[in-house]
Structure formats: C-alpha cells, structure tokens
Design a protein around this nucleic acid. Structure first.
Lengths: 248, 248
DNA sequence: GTATGCGTTCCACTCAGCGGAACGATCCGC
DNA sequence: GCGGATCGTTCCGCTGAGTGGAACGCATAC
C-alpha cells in the first residue's frame, strides 16, 4: 500500500458520525502504525486537507479540512449537474411539498448530489451520501436505463438487504428494472428505509445516455405514485432537455 | 516537496475554468516532471480522487473525482453550519428576493459555504469559492469581530485591489472595521465586483466567537442598506441563536 | 517528409518514508 | 498517592518506494 493510498485511507475513515478523530483512533481504524499515521496526519494538516481541533475543544483531534470542501465543490459531475438541476428541483419541491433528491450512479452505489426539502427524522439521506443502487428509487431508475454490464456489476457485488422490502434476488431486480422501463418511473416502497417511500425517474445527458436520477421522497403515507409519478417524470424530462440543449 | 504535497498540488491545479486537464498540462501547471505526474495521477485515479475522461470525450484527460465530493460534503465546518443556516437563509431570500451568501473565514480569505438565489451574470460567487476577506461584505463582517492577529494577518498578506472601490490601505481597513462594529453590519459597495453590492452581518457560534458571515447581495441598484440591513442582522442573530442553542 | 506534442514504459539511483522503541503527559480506578 | 492504561510525540537506522531522464509509439500539424 503506497503512501498516497495510506493518506487516502486516513481521510477515508472519517464519516458523518465521527466529525473529529484522535491520532490513536485513526491508527486503529486504518490499521496503520501510530507513528506512520502521525507523520501522514501532520503533513495533511499542513496541506489543509485535515485540521487540528483547537486545544479547547471537547475532544482534541483532527477533522476534515476546508481543502476537501473547496475541491469537492469543483468536481464537474457535481457542479454542472447541480447547477442545471436546482431550478427544476425547486419547482418539483414546490409542486409536491416533499423531499427532492438528485443522484448519480458511482460504481455500484448511488451518490446524492443535491437534496432539497427539510430533513425529517425518518429520512436520513445526506448530500454526498452513498447508498447501494438497488435499494433506492433513483438507483433503480438509473440502473433500468444502464448497460447490462452495469446491472451485472451491481448483482455481482451483492444485493444487501436494507429493509424487509429490499429487492435481494437477481431475478427480482431484473424484473423490477423491466417494469421501470415500461412505466418510465421507479417506485421505492420502503426498500431503503422503513416508513419512507419514493418515486423516481431517470435523467439523460446530451449523449442520450442516462446521467442521473431524480426522485420525490416522503413518508409512505404522503407518497402517492399516481400524482407524484407524472410530476417527477415531467421534471426529469425537463432536466434532460436542459442538459441536451446546453450540451452537458 | 513530499509526495503528498505533490499529489495535492496536482489536484490543486484544477479550477472551475478547467474541468478536465491532460497529463502534459498538469505537468506544466505543477512544474513537475511528466513522469512523476503520470505516476501520481495513475494512483489518484485508482483512489477515485481523479477520474479519466472517457476516450470519446471532447478532450481526453483527467477530472476531479467523486471521492473529493463525498469527502467535501463531510467537512464539519460545512455540514453543521449549512444545516443550521439553510432555513434562515431561505427566509432571508424570500424576504429580500436577493442572493444570500453564507461564508467562513479560512486563513486570510473567505470561503462560501452556501449560496441561495439565481446566478446573475454579474454575480459570479460560487459555493466553495475563495475571495480575499477584505474585499467582501461577509469577510469584513467577520474580520470586524475577529482577533487583532487575524486582521493583521490579512493586512500582512496584502490588500489586493479587485475593483476601484476595494479598500487597499491598512488604515482604511481598520477604520472600516471600527465602523462595522458600531453599526453591527458591513456594507460592500462594489468593492469586490463592479455593479454588485451587499449588506452583511456576523454570525456567532456557541462559544460567542464569530463563526461565519451572512450577506444579501444584488445589483447595486437593488441593494438598499436601510431596508436590507435590519433583515440581514435579524437573520444573523437568529442563526447565532440557533447555533448557541444547539451548542455548535 | 519533418516537426511538435501527446501519453506511456523502462530502469538504475537514492533519499523520503518507515516503524519499533522509548519518551513525557494526562487520566483514570484502586 | 501510586500503578496502569492511553494519549500524542520524538528519535533514528534501515530500505524499498518513489524518482525522473531517456527513449518509445502515435497522433496531428505544417
């Protein structure tokens, strides 16, 4: 494992539950010798990739630094899509009064690029969050219009169960994707979070290939596919058109 | 210069104007030998810090990868502040119908954490963007309530001129900061961008130290300090209270 | 054809990175 | 107050990971 990989591993052990970590904890989580972590972390602080928490803070340690935020905002996949999508997403939120998600496929998972609407205690999606594609509405919408190889990759990586309703069999998934293709939208009835459902539709880029997924999410009682479906599909079509017209 | 610093330099040469760069261009911008860049870039792609653009793309090359976006969204300074601020910012936007900025001081610059409101051609601020603190409303609002050492650091780093109205003398800046402290808000009359003005106020954290800046920005004709001032100050106080009550 | 620029591969050298050992500081429970 | 645990930090001799000049094949431009 090279130095770069080690440094990435150190940065990678931070998550939203551990905003700051001490040196020993970092060494434990990465499995690297304490001395090595100490040296790497020292250098990363110098580069502003990490920050030291002030001596007065509750827990002394390190946190992710602004450098990462600044670079993260420059990631083209995020910036160009989000800029084009935000107006459409705001309209969709105003029309449905639910939570709106924009996500892309990244490997076998879905990464949320942008989320609009208040955070309910039950709906825990985070911008930048990563969820197995088969267990979300957006993920299924994207997979339904992706290559067979992409779908196979997801199946071969396993179909982990998130709730009792998660699709966990390869046959179940391919059948579901066929259904999505015929209706043009994906339904997620508590497959990712209990009590939470969503309606999603695919977004296509200028090259006519699927580029992202758009979804309306809410408590199951508030999600009526009959009314939300057309709204999401319309918004997704609008966004696809905007992307096509601006050549993105 | 260590390997980590070189890798950071490679990542650092990407900006919003160059979403993708070729190997030779990276070598040129970093000043590193082509071979070295080639090796570093190869490893960064493996870590998903960078991505290769598809062979079919307009320009073959590399772009910033999702890894950076995902980590960037986890940066505590961003996440916790933005989550608390967004509702307040939305209210402020609805009340003023202008562009709302949330920014923190990062060294001698200001970094935008969150921006609400349509992007006018004249207002080029970007989320994750970095601007010298003395040339923005939010920056001056934060500096006015920061330690003398912080202000000195900005002065010693120079006071670059962005427009004819930028404050460029140390005396001018300290006088301006005094004025801000007495009125509780900062005015920026085309000091950062010609034609663009803004009204800003400081946001304080749970430790009663200045934590961020909030501003309302618009075309100069649309910015009336008399009406916007109280609105921004109120929103900033509200946000400060929210932060204090949730101990952030 | 020659020239220029690109990304890539090879390989011998050497110094940056490595990590075990040992340090002082702090915080427990007994 | 004292042993023990855990923390972050420093030291230093060893070595292989990282280095970069040279040369490659392949485009496109002239």
């Amino acid at each position: 494992m090279s130095l770069l990989a080690r440094a990435a591993a150190v940065v990678g052990v931070f998550d939203h539950r551990s905003p700051s970590l001490g040196l020993a904890e970092l060494a434990r989580r990465t499995g690297l010798p304490k001395t090595t972590v100490h040296r790497i972390v020292g250098e990363l602080v110098g580069l502003r990739v990490l920050e030291r928490t002030e001596p007065g803070s509750p827990v002394e340690g390190y946190r992710l630094g602004m450098w990462l935020f600044e670079r993260g905002e420059l990631v083209p996949a995020h910036r160009t899509l989000s800029d084009a999508a935000l107006p459409v997403m705001e309209d969709l939120r105003a029309a449905t009064r639910q939570r709106i998600h924009l996500a892309v496929l990244e490997g076998v998972d879905v990464v949320y690029l942008e989320i609009l609407g208040e955070i309910g205690v039950d709906i825990a999606s985070r911008t930048g969050g990563r969820v197995p594609a088969h267990a979300t509405g957006v993920g299924k919408a994207i997979l339904a219009y992706s290559s067979a190889a992409t779908v196979r990759a997801r199946i071969e990586a396993g179909l982990p169960r998130l709730t009792p309703r998660t699709i966990v069999t390869p046959g179940g998934l391919t059948a579901e994707l066929r259904k999505i293709r015929s209706s043009g939208m994906a339904l997620d009835l508590e497959e990712g979070n209990l009590g939470v459902s969503c309606v999603a539709a695919p977004v296509f880029g200028a090259n006519h290939k699927v580029r992202a997924g758009l979804s309306v999410t809410g408590l199951t009682a508030a999600v009526d596919p009959g009314t939300l479906g057309p709204a999401v599909r319309t918004a997704a079509f609008t966004l696809s058109r905007v992307l096509r017209e601006s050549g993105l």
